[in-house]
Design a protein around this nucleic acid. Structure first.
Lengths: 149, 149
DNA sequence: TGCAAATATATGTACATACATTAAATGTTG
DNA sequence: CAACATTTAATGTATGTACATATATTTGCA
């Protein structure tokens, strides 16, 4: 459905405004679908993103700083997301021996297993941009990079 | 900056995954900048969106249902956003006489004035997609519509 | 050495989001 | 018309977001 119909706004000031609104709307639309998948597995999207970063580091630990650097939403509160994952025993948190200000965060076997099950389900791909061709996906990424220049 | 560098992830599974992550990241990036503008005027982005919808209806009232239909994030809690706007006296809320389940929400003169000041500041345009040409903005919107098909 | 600045993380507060539930008013139908 | 279903909005709870502030540790340097 076109964005005009989705939000029942028949006319926009210009293509820039229309595209901006479409971008924010579509990100929310995708986020909702993604969240529904994660909910089946008992986590949220930010928690999933943190787990993926930790898997990328495994078996090395990550610090909160490293998580913030790599998270999609850089200003989100990594500490509290780690709190939730720790409560579910998907990560461990230990004071870093070399630098006692920092905290070493590691994904547990249960965390790795959860990611494996999510990957194996194939549900993530179904929520993605499967309607776009490879070329269209590349062009979209190019335009998005340009927005942030 | 390219998305690979923004989140320090040098390689993606495919263009679809890269583009998906880029979309979510860019929406957050734009949202942060937009929020900074609204903060200067004492409101948040969802509150601004509700005020714009109400201005579009003015002088007719809107119901909570109408707001939900037209909001960018359809699942957000329109009731509580209206609470905040009412506390700042940018909207009024009165029980609808024809249907006492519903609530008539109207933008006040102070609300209209706030929107005028935000528009006049030109700050919104500065946060938008000014790096894209008109054709690129149109192409982006087309791709986004296709994602949601 | 000692003290200020920088670093790393955690916490507090206000707001928003997501979803389930509740409460009141209205519609429907046997 | 009475019982039940539907509609409309508000509320409860858990999580996340944005930013300011606090706390502990380390570093730099006078």
């Amino acid at each position: 459905m076109k964005i005009e119909d989705e939000i029942k706004q028949p006319v926009f000031k210009d293509n820039h405004q229309k595209s901006y609104i479409n971008l924010m709307y579509t990100a929310g639309w995708l986020g909702l679908r993604q969240a529904a998948v994660f909910r089946e597995f008992g986590i949220t999207a930010p928690q999933y993103n943190v787990l993926r970063i930790l898997r990328g580091q495994h078996p090395k630990p990550a610090t909160v700083n490293l998580l913030i650097e790599r998270m999609l939403d850089k200003t989100s509160n990594a500490s509290r997301i780690v709190d939730k994952l720790e409560a579910k025993q998907f990560v461990t948190r230990t004071v870093c021996p070399n630098n006692r200000r920092a905290v070493d965060i590691c994904i547990t076997e249960a965390g790795l297993d959860l990611l494996r099950r999510i990957d194996a389900s194939g549900l993530i791909e179904q929520v993605g941009l499967r309607n776009l061709s490879d070329e269209e996906a590349a062009e979209l990424s190019r335009l998005l990079d340009k927005i942030r220049d």
